[in-house]
């Protein structure tokens, strides 16, 4: 946590130094999505982060906050862009789960066990937090999103995000089971996984109505549940006898769409849409306990406005809907992200 924080702060300080920012045009490095890759707010784009052109090295640091009623999701991290060709990034996400959610989740799971196992005693679940580290890399395969105005060929990049959930198997104390982790409890099979994605981005200068429009499509192969915050894959075990009931560790293909419009030289508005695998839905153990859709996932989307006063700094505000989270069926979040870049 400290390492990523230090790297983030260092990158932010570096980017505010008086020396010239990189040579890219304003806004053409994108902002940083909440998993650390250059792009929009939810979605990685084919753009390479930072202001460095093909002869330069650039980078960025970000801090993002999402307040979603009983959940709070923060993420922070830094990335480097090499010669407008390769991007590497490091990010940490932290999902703070309010005590009410932990209590209800525990109650949903334990309630069915009490008749069998007897009095649970007086263990009081407290609030919990789920942290995840994400190491990312992205390679621009071909295309120039901004300057190739002579054809419809987009800029295309291939990316990976390796995610490691630090609170998979522990972090919450519940009756009978002691110290457990919410992701494992809900039926995830592992604490880490790798997403592979392909993004295609195109900027249309002067179109529509004289404004610059950016469109992006991303295809992602993933095993993650709730972006990885609820673990990876699915493995459902009967809690009473350890019998394996269900397992699914295959990658699913998801897609993501973004549209962003420069309405003013320093202001961008946009919207994004991202599908999720919904791997933990209809989970048999949760079903037996009466809450089969506790970990159901919906598609996520957002609408945002970003202010880019200069090449070093930007602020993005958004309204995000992350869909269902355990015991919070409609997770509408206020989203705020700060980015420094060089």
């Amino acid at each position: 946590m400290r390492t990523i924080g230090i790297i983030t702060l260092a990158a932010m300080l570096l980017s505010t130094q008086g020396h010239a920012a990189g040579g890219k045009l304003l806004g053409t490095g994108g902002v940083t999505q909440f998993e650390g890759a250059g792009g929009g707010g939810l979605t990685p784009w084919a753009l390479i982060t930072g202001m460095g052109t093909e002869d330069e090295i650039g980078g960025s640091a970000h801090f993002t906050y999402m307040g979603i009623d009983d959940y709070t999701l923060t993420s922070w991290g830094a990335g480097l862009g090499f010669f407008d060709r390769l991007e590497v990034s490091l990010a940490r996400q932290k999902l703070d789960v309010d005590q009410r959610i932990v209590e209800n989740t525990a109650a949903a799971l334990i309630g069915g066990l009490e008749p069998i196992l007897g009095d649970p005693g007086s263990v009081q679940p407290a609030s919990a937090s789920i942290e995840m580290d994400i190491v990312g890399a992205k390679l621009r395969l071909f295309g120039d999103a901004v300057f190739d105005q002579a054809s419809f060929v987009p800029q295309v990049s291939l990316g990976v995000q390796h995610k490691r959930n630090r609170d998979f198997g522990s972090g919450v104390t519940v009756p009978y089971l002691g110290d457990v982790g919410i992701p494992a409890l809900l039926g995830a099979s592992s604490n880490s996984g790798t997403d592979y994605y392909l993004s295609a981005t195109k900027v249309f200068l002067g179109v529509p109505a004289g404004r610059n429009l950016l469109l992006n499509g991303t295809l992602r192969a993933t095993r993650a549940n709730a972006f990885g915050l609820l673990g990876f894959g699915r493995e459902v075990v009967n809690p009473l006898d350890g019998e394996l009931l269900d397992r699914d560790n295959s990658h699913e293909l998801e897609y993501e769409l973004s549209a962003a419009l420069f309405v003013h030289p320093n202001v961008v508005i946009g919207a994004e849409y991202r599908t999720q695998s919904n791997r933990l839905a209809d989970q048999p153990v949760l079903g037996l306990l009466g809450a089969p859709d506790l970990a159901r996932e919906d598609d996520a989307y957002d609408v945002f406005v970003a202010w880019l006063p200069n090449k070093h700094f930007s602020v993005t505000a958004a309204w995000v809907d992350l869909g269902n989270l355990p015991f919070q069926e409609s997770s509408n979040a206020a989203y705020l992200s700060l980015q420094a870049s060089f």
Binding site: L205, G206, G210, R211, N212, H264, P265
Partner: peptide, 11 residues
Amino acid sequence: VPYGLENQVLA
């Protein structure tokens, strides 16, 4: 020059 026309010149 209006912003819309500026972008079209850039294009």
